[in-house]
Structures are given as structure tokens and as C-alpha cells.
Design a protein around this nucleic acid. Structure first.
Lengths: 163, 163
DNA sequence: CCCAGCGAGTTGACGTGACAACTGTAGCGC
DNA sequence: GCGCTACAGTTGTCACGTCAACTCGCTGGG
């Protein structure tokens, strides 16, 4: 409709700085995870999700939904992690197909260590330099954005949500 | 040192929501760029940088510094873009090595179109749902973070900076 | 029985990104 | 000239992520 077709310089500046901050932060966290625990961020996400699973082995579909990843991405990731012996695909008793994903001992201990270290890093890099105002602003914006792009999502107050 | 070794639930919630918002936003912008103009975000960045270059061809090092990418990443990206005829590596008159990067006609027009559309999308997805307070808070935090992780950086007000 | 179609999961192709090792040119001291 | 170092750029390798095509088991219709 109306409006200038380009951004104001200060808008550009804000956008650029915001993106850059995010990129630098992600890079630091990735590197720390890699150096400290020898796992990548993607691997970390999978390990945490499996680690927190209450009912033992998960299936690929569950993992995909829980992480909000595409199934193919999960499958690729699991293949790599299976090669590195962090997870294993186990036979499911009820039907013939192997469809259970579970942590190996190695995967479980990696998860345990990394969770603590990672939380520490997040606090160091993100929360320590965050005033309450900023936290509120970022939180509000994040929720708006998530709701706008992907409305059906359990981002509500603090936990479980509808499903 | 001291402090709890894990994050508070509300901190986790903020962190998770923020990461998710960022991911969804990036994905939307990427897809729009791809669908609307047939170029990726990485290609877009290179095209914009070259397009804005005042003195014609740039060199790989300049590009890398300007984008804050690793040189190898730039080289790989240029190889792909050269194959797609968006840029060309031209001989540099002063020394024998081919070291100039410039846009092809195709690249130039792609850049021109994409810049407008992309700015539009950024406004739609980012600025429209952002109050002035939020913008200020986010801007402030971003600058702090960039300065903290990468202190020597031209993030000052609006342009050129020391170098 | 056969086969069409579905849903879950996998695979392949391709672009992306980080890191390390390599090539090649220029400059310096001898 | 010779060797050495520094630096720019390239290449290889591996992990990551998306999309499209595929496999496999299960069903339901004929």
C-alpha cells in the first residue's frame, strides 16, 4: 500500500545490529558447546529432548514435533548421531519396523554435562547483560512474532499449554 | 562461581521463545526472498554489498570484512554465484592475480529488485509489530551484545566509523 | 487376492557454514 | 638469487538444513 518502499537509515541500523547480535551470540554458544563438550547445537537439542522424555524411547515424529524440525532433518541428524554413537534406533516391539530412538550411555552422559554448561553460557552471554526492560521487550516481541508466524503453538505463559 | 547452575523456568521460556521467534522470522524472510527473487539470503547479502560498493569491484578480503564472514565462506559463495552468473571475478589491472569481484548485469538487476522487496518484508515482519519502547530496548541490548562479543566493530551511530 | 493410497520414515541432491590445509605472490634480509 | 615469512585467496572436508522423491507397512475398495 502506502509508505516508503525502503527502510529509514535508523531502522536499517537497528535491523542490522539486531541480526548481528543474534549471529554473534549463536556463534559463541555453538563454539562453546563444541569446544567444551564436543557436540553441536543440533546434537544438543536432540540430546536434551531425548533426555527429558519421560517414557523412554521416542519416535521420529514425536521428536520432529517437539523440536519443530522437519522430519527429514531429524532423520539426517539421527543418522549422523547414530554414527557417532550418541543415540540408537531400536526395534519397536509392536510392529516390525524399527522406530524407537533412545540415548546410548555416551549420549546420556554428554547430555547431562552439556545441559549444565550450556545453561551457564546462556546466562553469561544473554541474561547477564539484560535489563528487566530489555527482557520484557524482547519477550513481548518474541511472543508476538511466534504467534503471528505460527499461531498454533504452545508459547503461552510458562509451560505445558493446550496439548 | 556462585549462582544456580541452571536457568529459572521463566528464563528458559524467554530464551526459547526468542530463539524460536528468530528462527521463524529468518525462515520467512529466506523463503520470501527465494520465492520472490530466486536468491538466497547469503546471495542477497553479497549482492547488496557489491551493489553498494562505491568504487566498483571489491576484493574478497573487503567483502569478508564488510559482511563479517570468513574468507573461505566468501570464496565458496562466490564460486556458486559465479556459476549462476550473478557475479564475476575480473582481472585486476595492477597485479596479475584475478582479484576483483563485480556484479554481472543479471546480478545487478537481481540486487535492485530484491532490495526493495526485502525491505518491505522486514518492515512487515519486524517493524510493524514493534513499539518504540521495544525498539529502543532491543537496539540497546543489541549494541551491548555486539560490543561485548566483538569490541572492534563499526556499530556506532549510522555509518562509517573509525576506519 | 490385488492394488491404490495413506502415513511414517528414509534417502539424495544441493546450498550453506566452519575449520584446516594448501597455493601463490609480494616483501624482507642475506 | 635464495630462503623466509606474511598475507590473500582457494580448496577439501565435514556438519547442517531444505526440498523432493522414494520405500515400506498398513489399510480399504474392487
Amino acid at each position: 500500500m502506502a509508505g516508503p518502499r525502503t527502510l529509514e537509515p535508523e531502522q536499517w541500523e537497528l535491523w542490522h545490529t539486531w541480526m548481528q547480535a543474534h549471529r554473534l551470540l549463536s556463534r559463541e554458544l555453538d563454539r562453546d558447546l563444541q569446544r567444551g563438550y564436543g557436540i553441536s547445537k543440533a546434537e544438543f537439542s536432540v540430546l536434551v529432548t531425548l533426555h527429558q522424555s519421560p517414557d523412554g524411547p521416542m519416535r521420529v515424529g514425536e521428536l520432529a514435533e517437539s523440536l519443530d524440525w522437519e522430519k527429514s532433518r531429524v532423520a539426517h541428524q539421527l543418522t549422523r548421531m547414530e554414527n557417532r554413537e550418541l543415540v540408537e534406533r531400536t526395534d519397536n516391539e509392536s510392529n516390525g519396523r524399527r522406530s524407537g530412538i533412545s540415548l546410548t550411555a555416551k549420549g546420556r552422559s554428554a547430555a547431562k554435562n552439556a545441559i549444565l554448561g550450556h545453561a551457564d553460557n546462556i546466562r553469561r552471554y544473554f541474561f547477564e547483560a539484560l535489563t528487566p526492560d530489555q527482557a520484557a521487550a524482547i519477550h513481548a516481541w518474541s511472543r508476538q512474532t511466534v504467534d503471528r508466524i505460527e499461531p498454533d503453538n504452545g508459547t503461552s505463559t510458562s509451560g505445558i499449554a493446550t496439548k
